[in-house]
Write a protein that binds this DNA or RNA. Sequence first.
DNA 1: AATTTCTCCTGCAAGC
DNA 2: TGCTTGCAGGAGAAAT
Length: 305
Amino acid sequence: MAAMPELPEVERVRRGLESALLGRRVERVRVFRRDVIARPSDPWGGFARARSNPAPGSRRVPAAELLGGQAVVEIRRHGKQLALIGDAGGSVLIHLGMTGQVLVTPPRVRLSSSDHVHVAWHLEGGGRVVFRDPRRFGGVWTCPTTEVLASRWALLGPDALTARETDLATRAGGSSRAVKAALLDQRVLAGVGNIYSDESLHAAGIHPERACRTLSAECWSVLARAIRSVLEAAIEAGGSTLQDGMFTDSAGVAGTFQARHNVYGRAGNVCRSCGQTLSSAIVAQRTTVWCPDCQPRGLSTTCSH
DNA sequence: AATTTCTCCTGCAAGC
DNA sequence: TGCTTGCAGGAGAAAT
């Protein structure tokens, strides 16, 4: 029901920011909520930040640390994370969490923290980029150098858009966990969340509860290909925007891939491939939907393809 | 050591 | 109609 930015949605945002922000200089930065900002060097990488505004003892973040006065020279993405690179070498890492958005808005639209806008970057010559996130599972991390950014991203697995079967088999192959749990683990594979794990497993014909160690090399290969093709199709369709859908790209445009979901959100409906009723259960703490015919639970070491 | 469960937060929907 | 309850989930911390 909620709309979660996974890799395709973040990639749409990245592309939008590339056209709106690249080469532009940040004139002024406004911070409405200090507690969404941290540094990778903060305790636990700043993830366990205090939840009050401002957090007790939290510092005022210098504008230069948030790209103030700098031109944006590059916009990168790894998995679900986005980074704006400034011409002084520093960068701002943004994670959208569940309900985060990065929007390019006209300067005259009035903003406040009651709109859940937490940070606003005013651009030289007009225009503005804002980070808003009602549920505040997302956040902003300031990285003094691209090395700091790279070291943080090194904690993640390979980007799901380019990951190969050997990446998956090496990082998860021997595990007893359910294959869905492995796909959701960002240290295994970066960028896949609940929607695209279910869609990919359906496309690959693999049951979400199959233990990783029961998957053959052939299965991992089929799965890696399915992940890439599902993500590519989703990017092409502008990502998935669900009913209470927070997700839009940086211009506020919703995606259309939700209309092509084959399993996510369709429990009890019929499988579009075979007509069987789709099953649902909690797997890896997430609502999970699959087709009992297309994705046999079987203990065999081959997938259904 | 590996894996599972709990927690954070808000808005929407279902149920009485 | 208006309240309460439940649910959605990314990812670290805590528990197993």
